[in-house]
Amino acid sequence: MTSTEIAHTPQDSAEVATSNLPAMPHRPRRLRRTEGLRRLVREHHLTTADLIYPVFVMAGEEQKEAIPSMPGCYRYTLDLLLEEVTAAYDLGIPGIALFPLISPDLKDNAGTESYNPKGLVPQAVRAIKQALPNLLVFTDVALDPYSSAGHDGIVENGEILNDQTVAVLVQQALCHAEAGADFVSPSDMMDGRVGAIRRALDAAGWINVGILTYSAKYASAYYGPFRDALDSAPQFGDKKTYQMDPANAQEALKEVDLDIAEGADIVMVKPALAYMDIIQRVKRHTTLPVAAYNVSGEYAMVKAAAQQGWIDERAVVMETLTSLKRAGADVILTYFAKDVASLLRR
């Protein structure tokens, strides 16, 4: 080698390549280096205490019916439902949301079965609270499971009647409160129903029964499997005259403000995944707890993709629910609740 020749090594090349780079006092990757570090600086945490488990109840005994469009979900008769909710409670899930499959011969346009004190939901509430007094029970307040037309309200000449429907919803809420429900959850989107229910509950002495209201419930295509589960699809038209337009965001804040003024304790956005921007807007807008419903269509898509081997179901579920927390959800209704609680326990 002559005096003018220089021997270069890979290390020399690396030093030359980096020698002209500016100083990097901030290296975010330092805080991602190990699992322990990532946990230490994690901004949002999903816990079992965040979850409400939606369950389906039906009449009969010792029966458990699979819901084809919701793999892993079932309709339970009350005896088996008690076993299911006990398992959820033992996993640390603080509450369940109860939805009934009503026999067609009990359905009518006025939804009269919805406030039958001996009906399916009051029976289920009483049995659950007797067996598990500390498990929170949220009951759905709406007419669609009880309606012969499959709508959330009374129908007259093709129109959904608002005020007449609210009068029935009040009776339904009182019926659930008397059975022992901790929260009634109006999901109908009729105007003024939260205030009417709150006044009626207070007048009847049920001042400690809360209202988790579906404040921003959109006319979504994600509800299909749920309607299969309850046989509650509308028999004509759609629900766009009372559920919200998916194109609207500012309107959600108006609905939230109205529900808060009328006495809501928790406000909810439904669906969740396509409406994370709404969850975040609502969270910034109110000091009340904000719930998000990870709905049946969202559940079914994850299940279908997992069955094909296209995704890691557990990883996707945990990422999804953590993302809802990041968006601002304080409470998450999800059919994955038991699976997630088991994962978190491990």
Rank of each mutant, 00 (worst) to 15 (best):
96 I>L: 01
159 E>Y: 11
4 T>K: 10
41 V>D: 04
313 E>G: 15
173 A>E: 00
27 R>L: 15
163 D>T: 06
262 E>L: 13
234 P>A: 07
143 L>N: 03
97 A>R: 08
126 R>W: 03
84 E>C: 04
123 Q>T: 09
180 G>Y: 05
250 Q>G: 12
296 S>R: 13
4 T>V: 05
154 I>K: 08
234 P>F: 05
136 L>E: 12
193 R>A: 07
345 R>I: 10
123 Q>S: 15
117 P>R: 00
277 D>W: 10
241 T>N: 04
137 V>F: 08
282 V>D: 10
220 S>N: 13
179 A>S: 02
132 L>D: 06
327 A>K: 13
218 Y>P: 06
239 K>A: 00
53 Y>T: 08
139 T>G: 07
233 A>Y: 14
319 E>F: 07
195 G>P: 12
294 N>L: 00
253 L>H: 10
305 A>G: 03
114 S>Q: 03
42 R>V: 07
143 L>I: 00
172 Q>K: 02
174 L>S: 09
206 W>P: 02
305 A>W: 12
239 K>V: 01
312 D>Q: 04
326 R>T: 15
270 K>I: 04
214 Y>N: 07
29 R>A: 15
162 N>C: 03
180 G>A: 07
188 D>I: 14
261 A>L: 11
337 A>H: 08
23 A>S: 12
98 L>W: 00
136 L>R: 10
126 R>V: 07
91 L>S: 02
299 Y>V: 09
258 L>F: 10
36 G>P: 00
21 L>V: 10
21 L>P: 01
45 H>P: 04
108 D>H: 05
328 G>W: 05
299 Y>K: 08
246 P>F: 06
273 L>N: 02
205 G>E: 05
15 E>I: 12
71 P>K: 02
230 L>K: 06
70 M>N: 07
108 D>L: 04
204 A>D: 05
292 A>H: 07
272 A>K: 07
345 R>T: 15
176 H>Y: 13
306 A>E: 01
323 S>P: 01
96 I>Q: 01
202 D>L: 06
50 D>C: 02
175 C>D: 06
267 V>W: 00
216 A>D: 09
126 R>M: 07
346 R>T: 14
159 E>Q: 14
199 R>Q: 11
244 M>L: 13
242 Y>C: 01
282 V>T: 11
153 G>M: 05
292 A>V: 08
88 A>K: 11
338 K>L: 06
134 N>L: 04
204 A>E: 14
273 L>Q: 04
303 K>C: 15
17 A>Q: 13
115 Y>F: 15
342 S>G: 12
50 D>W: 01
177 A>S: 06
